[in-house]
């Protein structure tokens, strides 16, 4: 490896990479955490519609400082801006949109992502308590959306891998994640587990494998993440 700069992506850069993979005319739900930051980078001219659990259909970027409207807020409590053609529905109808399969892509944050596509994002504890957690809309989204992607940090702050063979935390269930975007890599999750599609600039396959607790296969078209 050359002396190329080696920095993990920051949250906004991860969000931008994820936004760049969204496809024309998709209806997209961006979850709390890194995913919702992608609203600043989504190509709204490509017909992508951002919809949220709390009933915003057709929002866009974060409101500029001083222009925040406290009633135009994402589920992650970010003030956003409605786009021309936006509509507002109540919570039950917002989830009707989700459950009925109209959302093309749900991007969720996660504590863990597993090579079998399962993921864990509703409780940080493996204590067996199903009464305590922050499930939010994740279980509805993962059942209802056409596809589920995850956007997360590759490791815990202590450096432990979050991409694992099997989840150690209780799984969220539902449709399996097909793509994981992290600060180090873009990874497809398929029949054969994790496949490395993109790497953070300066990171080798070995670097990424070293912090991934499941085998990585490597895409023949492996490339650097576009940052």
């Amino acid at each position: 490896m050359s002396a190329e700069a080696r920095e993990p992506l920051n949250r906004e850069q991860v969000a931008a990479v994820l936004a760049g993979r969204l496809e024309r005319d998709w209806i997209v739900n961006l979850g709390v955490g890194i995913p919702v930051l992608a609203c600043d980078f989504v190509d709204l001219d490509a017909g992508i519609v951002l919809s949220s659990e709390n009933g915003l259909i057709g929002y866009g970027w974060h409101a500029p400082h001083g222009h925040e409207d406290l009633d135009i807020v994402s589920p992650g409590m970010q003030y956003v801006v409605l786009q021309p053609g936006a509509a507002i529905v109540h919570h039950a109808d917002a989830f009707g949109l989700i459950r009925s399969g109209r959302v093309d892509c749900s991007v969720l944050g996660a504590y863990e992502a597993a090579a079998d596509g399962s993921f864990a994002n509703w409780t940080p504890h493996a204590d067996g308590r199903t009464d305590l957690g922050g499930v939010g809309g994740a279980m509805d989204l993962t059942q209802g959306a056409k596809r589920v992607w995850l956007a997360m940090f590759h490791t815990t702050p202590e450096g432990a891998p979050r991409l694992v063979e099997r989840c150690t935390l209780p799984v969220t269930g539902g449709r399996h994640a097909s793509l994981v975007v992290t600060d180090l890599a873009v990874i497809e999750v398929g029949e054969r587990g994790f496949e490395l599609l993109e790497h953070a600039p300066g990171y080798s396959v070995e670097d990424i494998q070293a912090v991934t607790a499941a085998p990585l296969s490597v895409s023949p078209s492996l490339r650097p993440m576009p940052v």
């Binding site: 459950r99 509703w122 067996g128 199903t130 499930v135 279980m139 509805d140 059942q143 209802g144 209780p170 799984v171 969220t172 269930g173 539902g174």
Partner: peptide
């Protein structure tokens, strides 16, 4: 409703 299927919920 399908929400929660496949999880401990």
């Amino acid at each position: 409703t399908p929400a929660g299927v496949g999880s401990a919920y």
